[in-house]
């Protein structure tokens, strides 16, 4: 204990700021949520501090598991799409001249100068039944009825991809930027065609960037509330929406907290497993033959 106190005193100010931030805005709120998840909702909608596991029992009910599965499915799909679109964008930027690169990165984030809610409503004005897209294709006589894009699962997916795409580009971009192009030439020189060069040399060397970028978008997607609320309509349920509903509509904070805890713990375990996996890989290798 004394040792720890001494060590705390040796921390530089930057570490203190980080520590303070971590505790007050991340660890503490999480512990409060965790504590609430074991409490009981009182008749009046307040929290009564009696220990129970009932919230968790309910959280693992089939209805909620289905919501979870749907949320994972949509977030995973959107993450993969972000990856497929984001990778070529990152590749182009990493290989562009410094001026083009700076310009490209700025353009990528210009939409973020606009308020998030406004941007989502922007999507509505493009993809809605009376939106730009449907008006155009109907005028052109391509369809008689407007395409149902909004208030469907596809609408949520579209919103997720649109909003999170830039965040996956940046980590992949920085990994690609560090990639030594002579490795590509070496692979081709040793007999690898373009595809083999990509899969056997480029991808393994930027894997870390891809993993970080994917987590960067996947985790916040899982908890997304605004996008499914505006673009998903009434019938499409998404974990984030269910949680918010529990807190603000149903006034059931303990159950909402249980749902939030399950999600957070699940993600933490997933990240932890991945880190362990990486550590094992970084150690001395065996080449599979011995």
């Amino acid at each position: 204990m004394k040792k720890l106190v001494l060590r705390l005193r040796d921390w530089p100010p930057s570490a203190w700021i980080f520590f303070a931030w971590l505790v007050s805005l991340s660890v503490l709120p999480f512990l409060i949520i965790l504590a609430m998840s074991f409490a009981v909702r009182s008749e009046s909608g307040l929290i009564s501090w009696t220990f129970t596991l009932a919230n968790y029992e309910r959280a693992f009910h089939l209805v909620y598991l289905k919501v979870l599965a749907k949320t994972i499915f949509l977030s995973l799909g959107a993450t993969i799409t972000c990856l497929l679109v984001g990778f070529p964008v990152a590749y182009y930027l990493a290989r562009a001249t410094p001026e083009k690169r700076q310009m490209g990165l700025m353009l990528l984030f210009i939409p973020f100068w606009t308020n998030f809610i406004l941007r989502i409503y922007g999507i509505v004005s493009i993809f809605g039944n009376h939106g730009l897209l449907n008006q155009t294709i109907m005028r052109l006589g391509l369809t008689d009825a407007p395409l149902e894009i909004l208030y469907t699962r596809f609408g949520i997916y579209l919103g997720l991809v649109y909003n999170y795409l830039p965040f996956i580009v940046v980590p992949i971009f920085s990994a690609l930027e560090k990639f030594d192009l002579s490795l590509r030439e070496a692979a081709m020189d040793l007999g690898a065609n373009r595809w083999q060069t990509f899969t056997r040399v480029l991808l393994p060397n930027v894997r870390e960037g891809i993993a970080i970028g994917s987590l960067f978008v996947f985790i916040p997607m899982m908890g997304e509330y605004v996008i499914p609320d505006i673009l998903g309509g009434a019938k499409e349920v998404f974990l984030g929406r269910v949680m918010v509903e529990q807190f603000f509509t149903m006034q059931d904070w303990p159950f909402g907290s249980a749902l939030a805890s399950v999600l957070s713990m699940g993600l933490m375990i997933a990240v932890w497993v991945r880190m362990r996996f990486e550590q094992r890989k970084a150690g001395p290798t065996s080449h599979g033959l011995r």
Partner: peptide, 8 residues
């Protein structure tokens, strides 16, 4: 040398 850093 351009050795592949991800391989042994």
């Amino acid at each position: 040398y351009a050795l592949f850093p991800h391989l042994s």
